[in-house]
Design a protein around this nucleic acid. Sequence first.
DNA 1: GTCTATAACGAGATAGAC
DNA 2: GTCTATCTCGTTATAGAC
Lengths: 187, 187
Amino acid sequence: MARPSTPRGQGRTRVTVAALELFARRGVSGTSLQDIADHLGVTKAAVYYQFRSKEEIVLAVVEDAFADLRGFVEEAEAEPTGRAATERALVGLVDLMIAHRQAIAALILDPEVGRILESHPDLMALTDRLHALLVGPRSGLSRRVAASVVGSGLAHAGMDPDLADVSDADLRRELLAVGRAVLLGQG
Amino acid sequence: MARPSTPRGQGRTRVTVAALELFARRGVSGTSLQDIADHLGVTKAAVYYQFRSKEEIVLAVVEDAFADLRGFVEEAEAEPTGRAATERALVGLVDLMIAHRQAIAALILDPEVGRILESHPDLMALTDRLHALLVGPRSGLSRRVAASVVGSGLAHAGMDPDLADVSDADLRRELLAVGRAVLLGQG
DNA sequence: GTCTATAACGAGATAGAC
DNA sequence: GTCTATCTCGTTATAGAC
């Protein structure tokens, strides 16, 4: 649907998939280009044929994830009420985490990713919009704290090794329950 | 109380304090010994006089934090009921996060720290005990997910830049409210 | 398009002067 | 105890053969 003529992860895609997995496990700073190349069974030079620098790889990985994010953020912002917008953002966020599990959270929390994002205001703005949706229109202290806890808590739960045995469907249901209880249960 | 003859962060303590701050900002892998030395206004060799390796610095930093953790985990385990134990663990965890703010969460979530902890079963066991306390005796799926979300969510909220303007007292109150709602509100 | 080879640099770590 | 100097290794990145 979104990738018409890319048969099976050729070229850049193969690199970003491998990079995402390694970044999630060891962090961006803890992952070398050699690691990525080894994981793909190629040499560093082969990776450098696809990307000019390590930062460019990180950006490509982040942008993949942010494409999904942009979609449901815009949907949520179109909702008529603040409550519906928060609900839609919550569902989108949980689905995003479930879809990638392990990977996304580690990226979001990685300080090196944060540093790189600072140079890209368009990507930063997207996270701000998500944050605003979770907090809602009445931004009291309780809601701000709740949004922060839920936002990072959901992300982290997806990659929690203690929950690795939980199925996607079960985890999705429980995460939505916790998110709704904290964000929508009180107001 | 715990440090009788160490006037003002001399020796190793100065290093661990600086290291904790830098680890929190850039991650362990993203922080070099040169960074730590520069931050202290000394040379790398001066740091190596206090610690034999970077891993030893990381361990010292983690052990400082874990000393507090051990205290309230043991208190919680002595509580008569599972509910009281969870409550005690929650309060202890929130207090720990507030006391250090910025710093602790970044350490806990750092993949390099996780890797180092794997070689130290005593420290690992402590986190397992904390986890067990948060989940409680009836470890249903809901509770397990809730404990995961709260555990990491609380940690992350402490270092959320969006909440940097919130006072320690206000944040503590709100974090306890969210934690209780999720962990104790339902069962 | 993927390789070898290597440059240029920074990392962790050590030795020894002072 | 802190310094300079140095070693070794791994890192990002480039050049050029195939």
